[in-house]
């Protein structure tokens, strides 16, 4: 279901950058992993990949006509009107909506991000009404911030706030309102433009470092595909439709499988051992590591988590949670991590 007016380069046609693609896919399978930060130089297909993932996103069941797209079958994250509706005992109407990518431009102002007083309504009707902002549209969707390291501090504070509990509380301009804002945060950045605040860094479930492909053959392949796409985008997208559909099916299947995967003791123990070995801060890394391992297994159509899932997950969930020391790049000693994993999973 590509937007016919503005075709997007298909995800499956992206050459290489497997780690980045994996990171996006596991997040789609389990959005509670908490998004991904993609670091790398300009022109490494970061934005292309994020925009392309939109075409693969699954449908979800939401309450009909709710501007916040409150998800069906749960009671924890509901907007005030849906809560009222459900508590009054009525059965809401549902509809299937596609998860989408909501973009947050770095020039966004506070009122547009958090939501604000509906000016028109105030002037014409003399009543206060909440006008939802980007955090509202982002509920249940992907919130994409390009150049996330250039985002203003106070906007970052708003994001952190909402991310903390999956709810956006608004107390400004005469408005007092709260609505669910559970989103998958996807950010891209070029480290040469500055670092990210550690608090925000920690909110990203996963991180990947992308580097430009070095191999001439691969590079030629990239050029060829890009030119082909630009020549006739519709035809190009069509030629990838079967592969895209396969990926969509794979995601659907994985989503079904993952519900049945119970993280076992072995996985939890291994995760904790790694955290202690590396001395990572807090517990978010443990939780994302466990979830990511399970998502990898599910993508491979297994309900048993294997060694290779952990190895892949470690590379995505750990690096950005290491403490940086002066004069040193934060590097994870993956050989040690892999040794721990192999030891635990040596069957």
């Amino acid at each position: 279901m590509n937007n016919k007016n503005n075709p997007v380069y298909p995800f499956s046609a992206i050459v290489g950058q497997e780690e980045m693609k994996d990171a996006l896919l596991v997040n789609v399978v389990n959005p509670s992993i908490g998004g991904v930060l993609i670091k790398g130089e300009k022109g490494t297909a970061k934005s292309t990949a994020v925009r392309a993932i939109a075409d693969l996103l699954p449908e979800k069941r939401t309450i009909k006509n709710c501007i916040f797209h409150c998800e069906a079958g749960q009671t924890r994250y509901l907007c005030p009107s849906c809560r009222k509706l459900i508590e009054s005992g009525k059965v809401p109407e549902y509809e299937d909506t596609k998860m989408r990518v909501v973009e947050l431009p770095i020039s966004a102002t506070e009122d547009r991000v958090a939501g604000t007083l509906d000016i028109e309504h105030a002037i014409t009707a003399g009543k206060k009404k909440f006008e939802p902002g980007v955090l509202a549209s982002a509920n249940g969707n992907i919130l994409y911030v390009d150049e996330v390291n250039l985002l203003d501090d106070h906007i970052v504070d708003l994001l952190l706030d909402a991310a903390a509990m999956g709810t956006n509380f608004v107390e400004r301009e005469g408005i007092s309102y709260s609505h669910p804002a559970k989103f998958m945060l996807v950010g891209t950045m070029n480290p040469e433009e500055g670092d990210l605040r550690p608090q925000l860094l920690d909110r990203f479930g996963l991180s990947v470092n992308v580097v430009g492909e070095k191999d001439t053959g691969t590079r030629t392949e990239i050029i060829r595909k890009r030119l082909e796409f630009e020549k006739d985008p519709y035809k190009f997208c069509e030629s990838y439709e079967t592969v895209q559909q396969e990926t969509r099916d794979r995601i659907e299947k994985a989503k079904a499988i993952i519900n049945g995967i119970e993280p076992d003791d072995l996985l939890l123990e291994t995760s904790v051992k790694i955290s202690l070995l590396l001395g990572v801060d807090g517990h978010r890394s443990d939780i994302t590591f466990v979830k990511t391992s399970a998502a990898f297994a599910a993508l491979d159509e297994r309900d048993v988590i294997r060694r290779e899932d952990l190895i892949k997950a470690a590379r995505l969930a750990l690096p950005h949670r290491m403490r940086k020391l002066p004069f040193e790049d934060a590097k994870v000693e993956f050989d040690k991590v892999d040794a721990v994993i192999s030891e635990s999973y040596a069957r």
Partner: peptide, 21 residues
């Protein structure tokens, strides 16, 4: 909960626009 976006008028209180209008 006091969110990061809190403005002074919401914290301390302000004139009731609806009533006034």
């Amino acid at each position: 909960i006091i969110p990061q976006n809190t403005s002074e008028d919401r914290l301390f209180g302000s004139i009731d626009i609806e009533k006034a209008i």
